[in-house]
Every structure is written in C-alpha cells, then in structure tokens.
Amino acid sequence: MEKFVSVKGVACPIPNANVDTDVIMPKQFLKGIDRSGLAQGLFHNLRFDERGNARKDFILNKPATQDSRFLVVGPNFGCGSSREHAVWGMLQYGIRAIIGTSFAGIFADNAANNGLLLVTLSASEIAALFDAIGPTGCEILVDLEAQVINAGDLSIAFSVDADRRTALLDGLDRIGGTLRHADSIRSFEAEYLKASPWLCDRIDA
C-alpha cells in the first residue's frame, strides 16, 4: 500500500448522506478476479450516461475537480455492501483521503486495510470545511504526521487511531504482523476447541 504522510490536492464536495457502495462501485465492475479496472467504475452511473458519455453536471466531471485527491462527504458514507472494490476504485481514481462526519463500519475497515485515509470531523468542522472548499471544490492539504487539514485560512486538527496511522505512515503487512503471534493463536485455539468440542464435531475429519 502507498504510504500517506502529507498530501496536497483538490478536495471535491459530495455532501449527500448515506452514499452507498452500490453507488460508489456499481455491480458491472464486480466481475473480476483481480483488483484492476476500477477507476472507471468509481461513481460510474453518476459520472456516465447509458451511452458512456460523461455527465457534465456531476461534480467529478467538472474541470476543477476531475483530478481530485480528496472527497469531503456527508454522513454514513460507504454504507451497504461490503465490496472492497469501492475502496480499490477510490485509490485507482487517485483519491487519497475522504473527510466526513461518519463512515460505515465495513467501508472504514476496508479503507484502513488499503491505505485510504478516512478523517472523521465534527458536524461544525465539516460545515466549515464545506464552506471553505465551496460548491466546486478547491486545493487543500492533508497532513497525517501533524494530523491537520489546511484549506485556505481554515485549519482543522484531526486524530486517527494510532494503529491505523502507523500503518498509513509506514505501510505495514497486517497478516505478517498477526502471524508473529502464531504461537499464541495456536495455543488459544487448542484450549478453546478442547473446551468446546462440539465446534469440531462433524467438521474435523
């Protein structure tokens, strides 16, 4: 995963509540066995009409925001389906962080596992950020090391869970990290299954 230290770029406003992962990554982009080709899928039905032409009225198709690095979003962003394709598509499109008041649980885990930074702000802070970037978006700076967002004169401090921040800053191998505890897992498992033998009945050959 790509490290995130401090990134400058255009922030695009998408203030709708409950933007779901079906809308972020529609079904026709879920048929792969790898992670490729998902930039085209991002918000596809909002970005393109039935003939594949760009819808000029959609925010990410406007000249000022088509190279956005950040989304500033409404509450409960990423709700619905668990499809990690939504997060892969964000990163492939070039989105590095999403800033909002709340994110759906599975989406937030998927983002953390792929190095997509999610920043959670209060309702008043997000309102100030929407004001600062305006309806058409503008350039901002997101500094993970200092945990601060700068948008013009506006400066907002944020905090991110220490584990996730370290992973984003250093790009950790999560499975390798857990497997360092393999002996603990093994001994827990042996004791646990011995105490609950019905969990193995008709499962273990």
């Binding site: 668990s82 499809r83 990690e84 997060v87 599975i106 885990d109 998927n110 596992n113 792929n114 584990d163 999560r174 499975i175 857990t178 497997l179 393999a182 897992i185 498992e189």
Partner: peptide, 17 residues
C-alpha cells in the same frame, strides 16, 4: 461482514484485529 483484505487475513490466521 468484512472486506476482501480481511477475508485474506482471516483465512491466513483464523483471526481478525
């Protein structure tokens, strides 16, 4: 529910952080 990265983690370790 979990995403695909966590499916991989679960298959490899039988655990999740």
């Amino acid at each position: 529910g979990i995403g695909t990265s966590d499916v991989e983690h679960l298959l490899a370790t039988q655990t999740l952080p």
